[in-house]
């Protein structure tokens, strides 16, 4: 048996992951044609590369079908309940930075904090007869964050894309989405609430707590960690 390392199967996230491992003496590469989604590892014996969609890596880690995986810290927290019982963070990788933020219309001059959002949600519900809508695809993260901060009288509406447009289209009053530069928010006349993001995400190397780790697998992990400069 070998230790399976799940890595995003395409795009910049894949390239950056390959670069990150490469800079630490572990060469990851696609084997065969670029469309084949098979990979090879040089530098650590007993490590097998598995190419997967970044969004599926949390689930595969939690199911124990892969031992290690690279994905966004936001995806792990969103997709896994009690995530830290299922996976452990081995190392933040310093790329793929994105903040999950809550944004409201910039013209809401009276709203700059969660506190304001909560007060506005109460007034909005009283006037419109339904709970203030926040469009997002990060349901768990946003709900837990708003509960922790005591925000009530809102509802989450699912938005899997073009989330910034939902306010103008009047299918939501506010949004919660990933942003790296804030450009799209500005273009849609939205502003970010003060007080820090819901979550500061970056690409992270995770270890599965649910996979079977044989004696030999542990030895491979130790060698890999030594190579990557990850302390216990």
């Amino acid at each position: 048996m070998s230790v399976k390392l799940g890595v995003p199967s395409k795009g910049r996230l894949m390239e950056k992951t390959f670069d990150w491992f490469g800079a630490r003496g572990v060469r990851l590469a696609l084997s065969g044609s670029e469309r084949e989604y098979a990979g090879a590892v040089e530098g650590v014996d007993g490590l097998e590369l598995v190419l997967l969609s970044a969004g599926e890596i949390p689930r595969e880690l939690a199911a124990g079908r892969i031992h290690l995986g690279v994905t966004g810290s936001d995806l792990v927290r969103e997709k896994l309940g009690a995530w830290d019982e299922q996976v452990a963070e081995l190392e933040p990788m310093g790329f793929g930075h994105a903040d999950l933020v809550i944004a409201v219309p910039k013209a809401w001059v009276d709203v700059s904090t969660l506190d304001d959002l909560d007060a506005v949600a109460a007034a909005f519900r009283a006037r419109h007869g339904f709970r203030l809508r926040i469009a997002t695809k990060y349901h768990r993260l946003v709900r837990e964050y708003l509960r922790e901060h005591g925000v009530a009288d809102y509802q989450l509406v699912d938005s899997q894309g073009a989330t910034e447009g939902t306010v103008k289209n009047e299918t939501a009053e506010a949004i919660a989405d990933i942003t790296s530069t804030g450009e799209t928010l500005r273009a849609n006349h939205l502003k970010v609430l003060a007080g820090g993001p819901v979550h500061r995400s970056q690409a992270t190397l995770f270890k599965s707590r649910k996979a079977r780790w044989s004696e030999a697998d542990r030895a491979v992990l130790s060698e890999l960690k030594a190579r990557l400069g990850i302390r216990d």
Binding site: P105, A107, W108, V109, D110, V120, F124, R127, E170, E173
Partner: peptide, 22 residues
């Protein structure tokens, strides 16, 4: 003028509601 803003108002929540909150 607290209502002054360099961005247009988008969405369902109206100017009257913002003024009321102020």
């Amino acid at each position: 003028d607290p209502m002054a803003c360099d961005a247009p108002l988008v969405g369902l929540r109206s100017e009257a509601e913002i003024a009321e909150r102020i």
